[in-house]
Design a protein around this nucleic acid. Structure first.
Lengths: 252, 252
DNA sequence: CGTTGTGTTGATATTAATCAACAAGTGTGG
DNA sequence: CCACACTTGTTGATTAATATCAACACAACG
């Protein structure tokens, strides 16, 4: 693990500086920590960051362990999960580039985290980061915004888990993923979209509250209906986005 | 709706003042907005508060409507819910005395809110409150804390909805409610506890992702097993708290 | 070239939903 | 005051959806 390098980008507005953290090792960048920090603050933040890299399957947060660190993913996808004693697992979310982990944890982590594919991230000692944060109200506001977004997503997921059937769950998942996939020109609903699924069927099931068999069967049915195509298990082509969206919202 | 009255309590620490908001009309108090505001700040906050009262069943937040207000419940219980077009409903949480509503909403409310029993609350114009907040970092931190707690609860609920069976869901619900009921001396797990359920079976079902029939049947089974007693539909006596807790965590 | 992991598909079991009936409580109007 | 409608909760019978158990195809890998 080598030194972190911080980059000051061209100011979006006069007097404002965009923060970008990354690491020499992986070359990745995350630019969503805070948008209004002074140059010297960037420096102080970067100085306490520890860049790390994790292979697929590696765990980097253990549920219920003391929350000593704060994480900022720079590339790859991680699964965040809660477990029951008998091994039943619920994935509460997937965290990708730019996501924060360890925000909503007063003392102990409320969930575990594992790398889905190769994950690069920057780790910050929690105490030191918190002391820094206290000095930068803008950063605190950015964190509130981030946690709020997560909460909205969590509420949406509760609706899915509590009230949607298998087809609607898969459709909702694909629609959400479609939004995550970077779209050219920011078009909201392209005629045909490709969704990448870096996670295994097991993870999709544990995220949507169903078994791998039901995930597979439901995808198979949609494929037979011409709603989607599956060139390989990790890629889904959305052939009828409008129909999928309607299904996701229980309108079909 | 009359004037709001603000009360300055004896300072917990020198220089710190505890905030308490309430309304003359209902007499209720909520003292958890912020614990470290100067006296003049209390005054400014209280000046923009609008005390309101809602009868059982009344709606005071409509899903997807512009988030123009921020709410602080002073007494009673409200249900927060999301709906699908065909009427399926998921209650994302119950909000009681001291809870904040409308925090995690950038532009539009992500959920609707209705009074379960008689609800008294203080409403704050969002814009004006936000301007005030910007001046009080302590308050912003308190909000982050609140949203974080909600997020942790939401993740716990995802585990429940995605992976627990009917018995485990009901057990988890009762255990959670048990924690909410104020306990004398703060004892964590009393030998016998009483849980009040101000909400109807319909609401419990919509919260736990099951039908009213399954809620009723599951409670009936637990009663027959001697795990709980049901003096009337709105009160549950926990007769074997340890067994209930084990069941809630999937250990039975 | 066997081994292992992943995804798919089929047959069966199980859980909870649905449909239905009814009891008890509540409010209304005559 | 009673008759009535209406709501809520409970329980029973049946159905439907998904889980479970099982087999197998296929790719990756030593």
């Amino acid at each position: 693990m080598r030194d972190i390098r911080e980059t000051a980008m061209r100011p979006a507005q006069p007097g404002a500086m965009r923060l970008e953290t990354g690491c020499d090792q992986c070359g990745a960048r995350a630019s969503n920590v805070c948008s209004t920090l002074a140059f010297k603050d960037l420096d102080r933040l970067a100085r306490i960051a520890e860049p790390m890299i994790f292979a697929p399957g590696q765990s980097f947060i253990r549920e219920s362990s003391p929350a000593e660190h704060f994480f900022n993913i720079t590339s790859g996808t991680a699964r965040l999960f809660k477990m029951l004693a008998d091994g039943r697992q619920q994935i509460t979310g997937f965290a990708g580039e730019g996501h924060f982990l360890g925000l909503a944890v007063p003392t102990a982590y409320a969930y575990g985290a594992e790398a889905v594919d190769t994950v690069r991230l920057c780790r910050y000692p929690r105490q030191r980061l918190m002391r820094l944060l206290a000095e930068f109200p803008a950063m605190e506001r950015r964190m509130l915004e981030e946690v709020s977004n997560e909460l909205v997503a969590a509420q949406e997921q509760m609706l899915l888990l509590g009230r949607k059937n298998a087809r609607e769950r898969i459709a909702s998942f694909l629609v959400r993923r479609m939004a995550i996939t970077p779209l050219r020109h920011g078009v909201a609903l392209p005629r045909i979209a490709m969704v990448r699924l870096p996670m295994a069927r097991r993870d999709i099931g544990d995220y949507l509250g169903m078994t791998i068999e039901t995930v597979s069967r439901t995808l198979g049915t949609m494929k037979r209906e011409g709603m989607i195509a599956i060139p390989d298990p990790a890629r889904i082509v959305i052939q009828r986005p409008a129909a999928l969206l309607a299904l996701a919202n229980g309108l079909a």
